[in-house]
Each structure stands twice: as C-alpha cells, then as structure tokens.
Design a protein around this nucleic acid. Sequence first.
DNA 1: ATAAGTTTGGTAAAATTTTAACAATTTACA
DNA 2: TGTAAATTGTTAAAATTTTACCAAACTTAT
Lengths: 214, 214
Amino acid sequence: MGKQQGNISTAVIRRLPKYHRYLKDLLDREVYRISSKELSVLTGFTASQIRQDLNNFGGFGQQGYGYNVEELYKEIRSIMGLTKTYNTVIVGYGNLGQAIANYTSFEKSGFSLKGLFDTNPEIIGNKVKDIYIHALDEMENFLKNNQIDIAIISTPKAYAQDIATRISKAGVPGIWNFAPVDLKVPEGVIVENVHLSDSLFILSYLISNQEDVE
Amino acid sequence: MGKQQGNISTAVIRRLPKYHRYLKDLLDREVYRISSKELSVLTGFTASQIRQDLNNFGGFGQQGYGYNVEELYKEIRSIMGLTKTYNTVIVGYGNLGQAIANYTSFEKSGFSLKGLFDTNPEIIGNKVKDIYIHALDEMENFLKNNQIDIAIISTPKAYAQDIATRISKAGVPGIWNFAPVDLKVPEGVIVENVHLSDSLFILSYLISNQEDVE
DNA sequence: ATAAGTTTGGTAAAATTTTAACAATTTACA
DNA sequence: TGTAAATTGTTAAAATTTTACCAAACTTAT
C-alpha cells in the first residue's frame, strides 16, 4: 500500500522512471536483492537519497537485507500508474508523429494507440498498424467515444494551443506535448512536455561552457 | 560580456531555453522592452527568479526601464552557444532518426547535419536531403574527417553504449542521446538525454495521482 | 546461540534554490 | 524642472532538497 501522501516533490517524481529502469534491468539479470548502496552505484544517486525517495511511498526495505527487487519493482510500477492501460491518440502525423506511433515499447508498457489525426487529405483514411488516420475535425467525437486518456500533440507549433484547448474540453486528462510551446490548459488537465529544441540548446550550452567544468 | 562564472546551477541552465523562446516570440511580435514582471507572466517563473537568473550572466537590465528585448535575446543566444554552428551526425536511422533528420528548425538554429549512419544494408548508400546514409563501420573515419561536434544516438538500446564509447574515442564533445539508457562516457564528453519513456511515465504518474493535486 | 557485519528508516544538519525586501536609479509625465 | 511610479541588482530570509548520521533490526557465519 504505502503512504503515498500527495506532496511528493517533482524532484522525486523525476527520479522514479530511473529507478523503474534499473529495477527492470536487475530483474532481467536475475538479481533479486539490492541495497541502496548498490543502487547508488547504478543510478548515480546517493544511497541516502534513494532511501529517502523510496520512503516517500512506504518502507519497502528491510534492515540488514536491503530491498527485494521484484517487490520494489512492482511497487514502483504501481506508484507510477503503470499497472493500468492508457488509451492514446496522436494528433499530427508528421515525421515525429510517425516515430512515436512506431515506438512499439509504449504498447508493451500499457499505452494503447487508438487513433491518429491529421489535416493532410492525402493521408486521411490510411491505416497504420490497424489504426486509422482521421481528419482533425473528427477528433472531438473520437475522444469522447473512445475513452482516451492521453493525447499526444506532435503538430506544428502554431496549431498546438488550439488543439490542446479542444482536447481539454473533450475531457482528456493528459497531454504529452512535443510542440515547442507551453500549453495553457484548464485545471485538472496534466501536460508533460518533450521540448526537443530546449534539450538540444542545453547541450549546446554545456558544450560551449565546458571549460568551466574542467 | 557578462560574468559567466563557471558555477551556474543546472536549475538555471534548464530555464535558459525558455527565456530564449519567449524573447524570440517578443521580438517577432515587435515588443522591444520587457520587465521581469511581464516576463514572469509569460514564463510562469517569479520576477525575482528571472532577475536572479539573468544576473548570473551579467546585468542586462536597467532600473526603471527593464530589459531591452533584442539585446537580452542576443545575450542569451551567446550564453547558450547558439551563435556558432555545430556539425552533427545521426547514428541509427530508424523512425526516430528520420524524424530528427527532417526537423528543419534545427538547421535554422545552426545545427548542421553532416552524416547519417545505420547498419541496414537496404538503406546504406541512400541519400536524404543531400546527406548520405553511411555504414556504421565508417563512423570513426567520418567523425574525424568532418569535425563533428554533436552525435545524435537514436539506435536501439542494446547498441547505444558501444556507439557512445566509439563516438567519445573519436573526440566528439557532445552526445544527444535518445536511447533509453544512461551512457557512460569519459570526462569531457557531454551527454544530454531525451528519455521519451521516462517522460511518458512521469505523465502516467501525474495522471494516476491527480487527486493529490486537486 | 552468539557475535560481527549489514542495512534500513528516520531525524538532524548542510547545501542549494527560491522568494522577499529594498536602496539606487531611471522613466514618465505634469 | 520636479515628483511619482517603475524596475533593477543585490542582500537577506525562507523554503526545499540533499546529505550525514545513527539506533534498531535483520542477516550471516561461526
């Protein structure tokens, strides 16, 4: 069960996927027991931080022993909401939309692609892996009739805000946004951004100011 | 010039691209003057934080006036290393590699794609926008002969570490990594990650624990 | 069974990051 | 020209995040 108070800091939340990733690796390597000290070597976080992080959700470890990898993995998956299935759509079927649609690992993690939307008449009506490409006009109806949990926005910048507003109105709780804008959405709608150029620019900053580090 | 001490915190660095983005918008809208208070409304950062952030690099503002948008934009671009050109290659020309290669906005920002690499014999030798797809074997030679600054890794997980090691040995200073692993590289090589599934999992966490927020 | 070695969870301290406050300076306008 | 309003850069305070520490509890080996 765990405590799961609603005041987990974003710093902790951002580290959860990394724990998830390494625990999966350990399971695959048939390691069934791990201490915070060993996890520290793998993840680069301090052992103390790892214990603090995990304790936000419950006391999963045992003194003198450490953590049971399988149990902890399951707990983390549950905490992260990865035990459910999420219905998704992709809005904007350009290069990026196609790349995301073809990323099979998302399906494996429980993210089920239900629909694709675009404005290009040349591709509307086509099927991609059993999924139709619909006209953008049909989006609202589709969202309502298919219990969509996550809408993925991969349109050009100029359309993203309008689409986000429409998605929000249709009652979709989550948006995964790849457009390089900060979307304004009503309370209760959650936006997670993947700002590729921001990331690239951080890299260029770090390369340019590298002397500082050395 | 600015002070540009080498101890800028990553918290500050992560905010730089957002300043850059909004300053560009302002310029496009022909707004030539902005106060930290107004920037605060746009970015969602506090005015105080904005002044603190900018002051890490120099006193670009003027009391009673605010900041000159054009000047500040130029300064930020310079700080972020966006006044130079970076030669890049993409290693792994799958769906994601293709999406990145076709992202024209990177070219506009000074990131010049010089080569593509893959192991698939069916596509090796093909040209994409005047750029050849090379065999992976040729990578080291190419990197050395073409002054590559940034290698973009968009291979499957299993190959990423080996490729990162080879890239580092070839003297490339920056890696933009899309593979879902944490790469180990020698000192002096900078890795910036885009972990798509981590981002998606954060979204699923936030959706699943939404009640907490309300 | 006992003792020595591990390791957690919690508490306290340290470090970092954010916010608040304000003197100094400039702008804007009467 | 003079005065009120605006706004920065800087210093100090508050808040948050990370690290250090250690008693309690478990494991392992003898």
